[in-house]
Design a protein around this nucleic acid. Sequence first.
DNA 1: CGATGTATTGAGTCGCATCAACCCTAGTGG
DNA 2: CCACTAGGGTTGATGCGACTCAATACATCG
Lengths: 251, 251
Amino acid sequence: MKPSESTWNMAVVKDCGACPIQRQAICSRCASDELNILDQMKSYRTYSKGEMITYTGAPVSHVGTLVSGVASISQGLEDGRRQIMGILLPSDFIGRPGARVAQYDITASSEVTMCRFEINAFEKLLATSPALGPRLLEMTMDELDAAREWMLLLGRKSAREKIATLLFMIAMKNKSLSGSDANEALDFTLPLTRETLADYLGLTIETVSRQFSALRKDGVIHVQGQRHITIPDLRRLLVEAGDDYSGSVLP
Amino acid sequence: MKPSESTWNMAVVKDCGACPIQRQAICSRCASDELNILDQMKSYRTYSKGEMITYTGAPVSHVGTLVSGVASISQGLEDGRRQIMGILLPSDFIGRPGARVAQYDITASSEVTMCRFEINAFEKLLATSPALGPRLLEMTMDELDAAREWMLLLGRKSAREKIATLLFMIAMKNKSLSGSDANEALDFTLPLTRETLADYLGLTIETVSRQFSALRKDGVIHVQGQRHITIPDLRRLLVEAGDDYSGSVLP
DNA sequence: CGATGTATTGAGTCGCATCAACCCTAGTGG
DNA sequence: CCACTAGGGTTGATGCGACTCAATACATCG
């Protein structure tokens, strides 16, 4: 099994007690009584690769948690330009309580499974639950922090720095998920196409491709096949990312 | 009194009952008993223009609401590049409950007054209040939406579109605040220097200046003095912003 | 095997950054 | 009162980085 599959596409478990993402998701703070209620409310739905989960202006009937797969939040100008505002990974929450109309397009980048709640029922529970609200607030603030960090990248970083930053972040996420050792070489499979990458980084596919080649020639990354990346020296990659002093402390 | 002063720099009222921003702030949903507690807890502090309210890595002792003035949330790369991630206006909340270290630099763009709460006391109240949490969640989600909209601007819009978008947003904000009529010419005074504008839009001051001149020559805006802007045709400006179909419905 | 989606690479162009000169206004002190 | 200075703003010349257009390679799938 390839790294990407083990990390981003784990098997879906339909029993809350055994759910692999329960500890990170919206329900992570719920006591067993609330978990039971959610268990009763939930329904699963699977979206195929490329399918739109929702789109700007669409009526919203459900909110929920992404259980497996990768999806992207995006918005476009009508001349075709498109910007991805966020990548959704397992345990991320989709939907805004209080909103009955979707603000963005959400597209499945791979096959995606969601654990969904009907929005009215969810809001009702949210209003009374002592655990749901604070957790949702925390997750929303994390997303806000991530969005703001991305604004620095979009507004001020060069193409090379953008690619390096993204690779660094994916490498770190992988490292923490797989709990691998500190300084060994990291490798992973990108779950994103060049086009998705480009839309995420505010670049074109050609520029993304060129920068990948450049980083490969300079030995910052190694590439096997189309998507499989090896990072020989994480520190080197961090320097290329531009903000070497940054928050993420390497030993 | 100039428009900018009336809009962004209203007099500070230290009585909650008469506070002009109470209906938009974190405390807007509080019943009178909670309002009394907040009233007891609060302390005001004023920052002079240019002063840093907090900076990345600084210990956090207070959270609170911006009562008057304008401030900016920003982050920089050490070579001097800087990106503003958000503009803080009266009623905006500053600080993240749960965080004891500041994530960003926050700088007063004008003289700023804050209504502050000691962070431990505030968190304690937040945990029990039925009104504070939901309101904070709502405000955070609004900020997230704004941040994501800005990502589209930073990643995909041209310099001209960026300027037009910003002017449009300020004009709309002003229009709703002053409750002026639908299609009359709008005018306002920019509360931001060219440098702040540039850092906000991910541009240089020279480019900002050039685009202002271009929009002026094309009759999209009129400029009196340094900062005073008149918009003869809001619809025209919206077209220049690139996303003419957008959410903001003009009649 | 062609067909389609995805990726790489090259040549040419354009938008924005950079470097630099100059203007305007407000504030300061002789 | 006026020269001086400093901060903010405008405008011009030039270069570079990223986009555009275009051709080719590679991969996957029916």
